[in-house]
Design a protein around this nucleic acid. Structure first.
Lengths: 330, 330
DNA sequence: CTGAAAGCGCTAACAG
DNA sequence: CTGTTAGCGCTTTCAG
């Protein structure tokens, strides 16, 4: 059967305490005893049961990750960074996909609490401020990633979405485009709202009137962006450029444009946001704003670990920089 | 502080045993007592500690997932399916990236054992048969996904890679291509070896001589495929078609071809494998073999759960079908 | 229908 | 330097 600390103790003729001491590299163990025990551990291939350890230590060395969808190309790199960083620090990652579904987000939090994870990295939807309030009241370590649903509660690791969108639209404006449409992201998220705000601000600052027909609601998916673009094309006066809220949406725009026999950027210019892998693979290559996806993940973990180690420590939001990546589509 | 079963018991003036009974929906509890306890649980917002439960039940309702890299576009969909299916069955997923690194794979297994996960879904590299043998000896529930490193030990959920590659090459052959090169995947994996075998077999069956210069070792990454294609182009007699071991490699091939000012498929035809999202986004759209990624993940979980529930149950390998997706690149 | 007692595997005072 | 004791939060006989 499974070998436990007792087995080691018995075979070594010592108490479990002593075994526990060598397991945890504590002093106060005779050299002879120590080596004897170490040998036994080796021989019997004993591995401490971390569930038992977790129970007494009140610490599981596990982090819960709550994201909308790991198969959305933005998240794998973030998740990879999170797992890398966690791995290095001796933590494991349990992940949970929510599809931005409020009920699933709640379920995830309950699950993680019952699993006694040491902290949470979350990307929630607007409407779930309650969750964070409760967590906060219980002093649970949490960091928000990508989007914030309740900014004053927990540190956020993200980018300045408004400014990032602004930069892109400004670039388009400076290129001479005036009829710029915007396909939004899921407006249940702060990121989508902020990008929309950035788009509007840029137009305002450059004295270009905002045309509500040019703002179509999307949800960050290719499919909806495809349909949005079709709507845009049916306009009396179609736009000459479109800023898609993310690259996946830009890909949907590409498809609609190709289907209509239009050329990018000659007929209509297209910009995206995020710089996911496919951006440089699209033809023409997509002009977009690069998010430091890997860094976001790393930072989130380091901020969280700081909170875990010392809840009182001052942990600040980390707003990383995006970068305009000029390629061929604008 | 955290509310425990004891707190509930105390407030309800009953023993913890009774509370435990209602927690687990056991009979033999008076209606009055039950409702009283239920009310208290609600009021105090009590959630059972699953670490403690896991310790006594010897069951954590957790599955360990060992994959090379979640940010490789093939895996997110698989991972999503795994998490979905697990979630539905009350299990959580801890994931671990190994980069096909033998040491990391070992570390992952050790970690998961110490965490007492109920089972493992693994995608390992050749050279780590030992791991599986040990696991097997300990009767640990494991299912291999995508690739097998030790076929007779544990069930494999995957596709018939040899046959799949064969189909693609056969299609190219029938299209009239004779000078077909192959950029392999990472030959530390069975998938890459099988695809290579399928490629060779197709050429043989169609009496096309195998030209070793046309077989370039890759590792499933875009970068190496890019370089491989450059090598191919320098050949005295460059190929007229190339079968890349996966779509990511095909993307690398695209880049090299574009850089050389060549047209696809006019100058050189390109085929991939897997049908990841970008395949239909590339221009020209990529002809490839579709892997049922989501199904692979689902099946892996259901096979594993069967093993967990009853280790003796006969669980068979699941070899799913791939599908030739003809688009524009061949 | 209910409770007392034991124990899952481990750590942590406290003695000696 | 080492062992005894208690206990983490929960489930499970076994009595009553």
């Amino acid at each position: 059967m499974k070998v436990t600390i007792k087995d080691i103790a018995k075979k070594a003729n010592v108490s479990v305490t002593t075994v526990s001491r060598v397991l945890n590299n504590k002093p106060d163990v005779g050299d002879q005893t120590r080596t004897k025990i170490l040998k036994l551990i080796e021989e019997l291939n004993y591995k401490p049961n971390s569930v038992a350890r977790g129970l007494v230590m009140q610490k599981t060395h596990t982090i819960g990750l709550i994201i909308p969808d790991i198969s959305n190309p933005f998240f794998p790199q973030v998740a990879r960074a999170i797992e890398d960083k966690a791995q290095k620090s001796g933590y494991s990652i349990i992940f949970f996909n929510t599809d931005n579904h409020l009920e699933k987000e709640k379920k995830a939090v309950e699950l993680f609490k019952s699993k006694q994870v040491d902290g949470l990295i979350v990307s929630l939807s607007l409407g779930n401020e309650e969750i964070l309030k409760e967590l906060k009241a219980a002093n649970y370590p949490v960091v928000q990633i990508d989007r914030s649903v309740f900014s004053n509660s927990y540190p956020l690791v993200s980018i300045d979405n408004k400014n990032s969108a602004y930069q892109m639209v400004e670039y388009m404006l400076k290129k001479g485009y005036k009829k710029i449409a915007h396909i939004t992201g899921d407006l249940k998220t702060t990121t989508a709202r902020d990008r929309l705000a950035g788009y509007k601000k840029a137009l305002n600052d450059y004295q270009v009137e905002i045309n509500e027909d040019y703002i179509i609601k999307g949800d960050y998916t290719q499919q909806l962006a495809f349909e949005a673009m079709q709507t845009l094309l049916k306009l009396k006066e179609p736009p000459t450029a479109v800023f898609a809220a993310n690259d996946l949406s830009a890909a949907g725009v590409y498809k609609a444009l190709f289907a209509a026999g239009l050329n990018i950027p000659a007929d209509i210019a297209v910009a995206g946001h995020d710089d996911i892998d496919i951006a440089s693979l699209l033809r023409p290559e997509l002009t977009t704003m690069r998010q430091p996806k890997y860094s976001l993940g790393e930072k989130a973990v380091s901020v969280l670990l700081k909170m875990i180690d010392n809840y009182e420590a001052e942990v600040e939001a980390q707003i990383l920089k995006t970068k305009l990546v000029i390629r061929e589509s604008v």
